[in-house]
Design a protein around this nucleic acid. Structure first.
Length: 302
RNA sequence: GACCACGUAGCCAAGUAGUAAGGCAGGGGUCUGCAAAACCUCGAUACGCGAGUGCAAUUCUCGCCGUGGUCU
């Protein structure tokens, strides 16, 4: 059976470096699972890393003003993975976007129901209550399945209505499930140290020219509204700075906090994912972490 | 040294004679085509110290300490 290695974990845990090492050792290629590194020109702030010897796929594949979603990721990622398999190499999925990784492994049943942008725009102005009423009317089952959190989430409600409108397009789950042997490696460490690492990395990115990167993107015609910049950590925090409303120090602090928050959300995702599949956590602050991972992969791969 | 102001959770910050908003930070969670998004949820027994008046003080009075400012 084909093998698929997956490396996940919150930001700033060294997933990419580990990926490169393992790729070298096991004749692999990297398949990125990162919802922001797909965008061209967003390099420093999203933390893109390249290795001259190791091929990395699914980085720099669209422009910041183009739409990209899990569905796109799913299609592309499987295409790439199949290709790597055909060439007799090991695909190593590396990334922090839990949603993408989860979709890749388990498939998405409503995939195939494309976004109805007209509908979305229409419903955008509706209150949560009226969205709920609409959904309850057209798809009571879905309504009942939703939890407290999702019922108050307009974005999810709108999507649910969108799906309900095109129910016939929901694909059979089985079609989407691929057959492969996967090993998931999760990287962790205590929040305290993780936050220190994040803060340090933010400082480094500023030194590397984060501010200039944003200016360059502006110069290319991208702005907070027409691109993904306005909803991306490390970029959106600068908005008020460029509007001369806040000092740079404040931007930096907000950026750090946003990364902490993001790391926490990533962890809740991975905690769940790693509970079921064939997977294992590694504490990167442990001395022999790297060796342990290598041994695990070795015994799984052979 | 004198005068004035202030002293509320890790930080910022409201407020009241009957034991106290909110924000940030922090923790937990949701998740099936925007996911670095969007959304849900949870704390902490915080009113500088001492005395006085009051049924009752964080809230009033006095003293002390601390911080900031003004003045000679």
């Amino acid at each position: 059976m084909h093998k698929l290695l997956i490396i996940c974990g919150p930001t700033a845990t060294g997933k990419t470096s580990l990926g490169f090492n393992l790729a070298e050792e096991f004749n692999g290629e990297i398949v990125s699972a990162d919802s922001r590194q797909v965008f061209c020109g967003m390099d420093i702030i999203t933390g893109k890393q390249v290795d001259s010897k190791i091929k990395t796929w699914l980085i720099d594949i669209v422009n910041p003003d183009q739409r990209f979603s899990v569905a796109d990721y799913y299609e592309l990622a499987w295409k790439v993975i199949s290709d790597i398999w055909h060439r007799g190499k090991l695909p190593i999925v590396v990334g922090g976007t839990g949603f993408y990784i989860n979709a890749l492994i388990n498939g998405i049943e409503t995939m195939g129901v494309e976004p109805d942008w007209k509908l979305r725009e229409q419903l955008f102005h509706c209150s949560v209550v009226s969205l709920l009423e609409t959904l309850e009317k057209i798809d009571p089952q879905r309504y009942r399945r939703m939890n407290e959190s999702d019922r108050k989430n307009p974005r999810r409600l709108i999507r649910a209505i969108e799906v309900a409108n095109q129910k016939s397009k929901i694909k059979n789950q089985n079609e989407k499930i691929k057959n492969f042997d996967s090993l998931i490696i999760g990287l962790t460490l205590s929040n305290e140290i993780l936050y220190q690492r994040i803060d340090q990395r933010v400082e480094e990115r500023i030194k590397m020219g984060a501010e200039d990167e944003i200016k360059k993107l502006f110069a290319q015609g991208y702005n907070w509204e027409n691109s993904v910049l306005g909803v991306t950590i490390g970029y959106k925090e600068w908005k008020e700075y460029f509007e001369k409303k806040v000092a740079k120090e404040e931007v930096i602090q907000k950026w750090k906090f946003a990364e902490h928050d993001y790391a926490r959300r990533q962890m809740t995702w991975f905690r769940k994912a790693l509970r079921c599949a064939q997977s294992k956590w590694f504490d990167i602050t442990k001395e022999n972490c790297q060796t342990e991972v290598e041994n695990d992969v070795k015994s799984w791969y052979s």
